[in-house]
Design a protein around this nucleic acid. Structure first.
Lengths: 126, 126
DNA sequence: GTTTAGAAATTACAACTGTAAACGAAGTGG
DNA sequence: CCACTTCGTTTACAGTTGTAATTTCTAAAC
């Protein structure tokens, strides 16, 4: 129905802020981004907000002088779409190699290992 | 040292063929791609081969009339780079949520579950 | 040698991206 | 009221990507 708009690398940064703080003003988004990386320029962020609106990823409500941005696509569906695309592109669509790769190439705490083992157990008999 | 060149979506398709069949001729690549998706056009593939050469992802050896293409970056390091980038972009760099997402949103055979559980066990005491 | 078929190289072109500067409208402080 | 600040809107511009068509080479066949 609604083919989740493709969100680019930098656009993801913006979306993450909007998802977590919606509704937000442009300046709040800018502030949020600069917090992690001061090299962000306001104009750049404004451009990205606009593009995301054009793509249908964001909407906004005008309230007096203020504009409140909010997501039109959920983080969940965006994550799903991006993940699916990545899985396809890099691992040819095979989940197992993807999981093996990530598990093997990173360190996990015992707690994480346990949690994941539990998740897998849940999958086991289905 | 060598910052793995960024490989685009369609370029990945080409690289996969080269990785698996190196050294390959352009026509073999084209053939391989068409096998899975007949809508590929030869010129498109040639363009991609050229771009990949320019990016330093591929090299070739000229042997008479034939050009033999081969990868200059390994599949492994490319997968690693793409995975790292994806992990960062979509999951903010947190492995656990990524794994949880993929495990939860896909089906796994009992065999796969067992294998992954084994992998996790290996990680457990490190 | 001259033609020719098959491959590589060059050119094309619009959409998307990263990165901003410049412009314009609308309050804000005087 | 008027300059100034603050947002959002428009314009810019080069690099990347998807998708090819066109042109140029060149080894091979005459």
């Amino acid at each position: 129905m609604k083919p989740v708009p493709r969100i680019s690398e930098t656009e993801w940064e913006v979306m993450k802020i909007v998802w977590r703080q919606s509704p937000v003003s442009a300046s709040q988004v800018i502030e949020g981004l600069k917090e992690r990386d001061p090299s962000w320029h306001e104009q750049t962020v404004k451009t990205l907000l606009n593009r995301l609106i054009k793509k249908g990823a964001l909407g906004y409500r005008k309230e007096g002088r203020a504009y409140w941005y909010r997501p039109l696509v959920s983080e969940d569906e965006s994550v799903r779409a991006a993940s699916q695309s990545f899985l396809q592109r890099v691992f040819g669509g095979s989940l197992q190699p993807l999981l093996a790769h990530f598990v093997e190439s990173h360190n996990l705490s015992t707690k994480e290992v346990n949690e994941l083992t539990r998740l897998l157990k849940g999958k086991e008999r289905k």
